[in-house]
């Protein structure tokens, strides 16, 4: 594809590059903050978990555990396309 042959194409590919999709799940008492299309939720690549939670109006004080692809992560972890993200309040049992 030649550079800038079609302004529409360029716009399209920029948007493609700028968007990533994550599979987002909020659990237990946080479930109520689940956005539409959470299974394929669009984010800007590199968005941190803290930013994501702010965007969704999830009170950070209520979040205890964040799993990205099954591994516990902290709030500053940047997200990328294809990530599986699970957000939990403090839970216990046994």
């Amino acid at each position: 594809m030649s550079d800038c042959a079609n302004p529409g194409d360029q716009f399209f590919s920029t948007v493609l590059l700028m968007t990533a999709h994550i599979a987002l799940k909020l659990f237990a008492s946080l479930k109520r903050y689940t956005p539409a299309q959470a299974d394929r939720f669009s984010i800007t690549p590199g968005l941190t978990i803290a930013d994501l939670l702010k965007e969704l109006n999830v009170p950070l004080a209520e979040v205890k555990l964040v799993f990205v692809n099954g591994v516990k992560q902290d709030m500053n972890m940047p997200l990328k396309d294809g990530d599986r993200v699970g957000i939990f309040p403090a839970v216990g049992g046994g």
Binding site: S29, F67, G86, P89, A90, V91, G92, G93, G94
Partner: peptide, 25 residues
């Protein structure tokens, strides 16, 4: 005063763990 013993366990029971242990693989 603790969120697990005052909220998590009474609201969802111990089975609240199913999702988190599953998420943790």
């Amino acid at each position: 005063g603790h969120p697990v013993t005052s909220q998590g366990l009474p609201a969802y029971g111990t089975a609240i763990l199913i999702n988190i242990i599953n998420e943790a693989g």
